[in-house]
Amino acid sequence: MVALVIACIYLLLACIHVYWVLGGELGKDAAIPRVPRSPEAARGPAGPDMVPAFTPSRGGTLLVAAALAAVAGMVWARAGLASAPYTGQALQWAIGVVAVLMLARAVGDFRLVGFFKRITGSPFARLDTRVYSPLCLALGAGLAYVAIAAP
C-alpha cells in the first residue's frame, strides 16, 4: 500500500512537470525559488525585489518529469506491481539512493530550499516550508521503507 501511494505521488509530480513543458502556467511561479535582487531586499518581504533564482528550460523540466516517472516505476517494480530490467539488490539500492536524495532535499541547501533555508518571504518559500519539504521528508521515509521492506 505504501509503495502504491508513493508511486502515485511520483506519477502526479511527473504529470505536473509535463503540464509545464506543454505550456501550462498554473503553479509554476510558486515552484521556483526566488532570490533578492539586492542584499537590502533580503531583509524585506517578498515583492518586486525578489526574482526567480533560475529559469527552468523545457528540456530540463521534461528530464525531471522522466526522472519522477522512473522513480514511480522503480517503486512499482520493487513492490512487485510491475517488471523492471533490473531487480533485487540493484533496485533496492537505487530506491535507497533516491530516498537519501529526498531526505537531503527536505533538509535543504541552507539557502533557497529545505527546512533550514535562509531566503524566505516568497510564495515558494512559504510552500516549501509547509508542503514541499514535508512532502520530501515523507517521500524519503516512504522510499526507505519500500527499499527495506518490500519483497
Rank of each mutant, 00 (worst) to 15 (best):
M50T: 06
M50E: 09
M50L: 11
M50H: 14
M50R: 10
M50F: 15
V51L: 13
P52R: 02
A53S: 14
A53Y: 05
F54V: 04
F54H: 12
T55A: 12
T55K: 13
T55G: 08
T55R: 14
S57H: 08
S57T: 15
S57G: 15
S57K: 06
R58F: 10
G59P: 00
G59E: 10
G60V: 06
G60P: 10
T61V: 13
T61H: 06
T61L: 08
T61K: 04
L63R: 12
L63S: 14
V64K: 11
V64H: 06
V64M: 13
A65H: 05
A65Q: 05
A65K: 03
A66S: 09
A66R: 01
A66N: 03
A66T: 12
A66G: 09
A67N: 05
L68T: 00
L68I: 01
L68P: 05
A69Y: 02
A69P: 07
A70K: 05
V71M: 10
V71A: 13
A72E: 04
A72Y: 06
G73K: 00
G73D: 00
G73P: 04
G73Q: 00
M74H: 00
M74R: 01
M74V: 03
M74E: 01
M74F: 08
V75I: 11
V75K: 05
W76N: 01
W76C: 12
A77G: 02
A77R: 00
A77L: 04
A77V: 01
A77M: 03
R78Q: 11
R78M: 06
R78K: 11
A79F: 02
A79I: 01
A79H: 04
A79M: 02
A79Q: 04
G80S: 04
G80F: 07
G80E: 06
L81R: 09
L81K: 01
A82P: 00
A82F: 05
A82S: 12
A82H: 05
A82L: 12
A82V: 02
A82E: 04
S83A: 13
S83L: 08
A84S: 15
A84M: 12
A84I: 01
A84L: 12
A84D: 07
A84H: 13
P85E: 05
T87R: 12
T87G: 15
G88R: 03
G88D: 09
G88N: 07
Q89H: 09
A90W: 15
A90Y: 13
L91T: 06
L91A: 11
L91I: 05
Q92I: 06
W93E: 09
W93Q: 12
W93I: 15
W93T: 14
W93L: 15
A94G: 10
A94L: 13
A94M: 11
A94I: 07
A94K: 08
A94C: 11
I95K: 08
I95R: 09
I95Q: 07
I95G: 09
I95C: 10
G96W: 11
G96L: 06
G96H: 10
V97F: 14
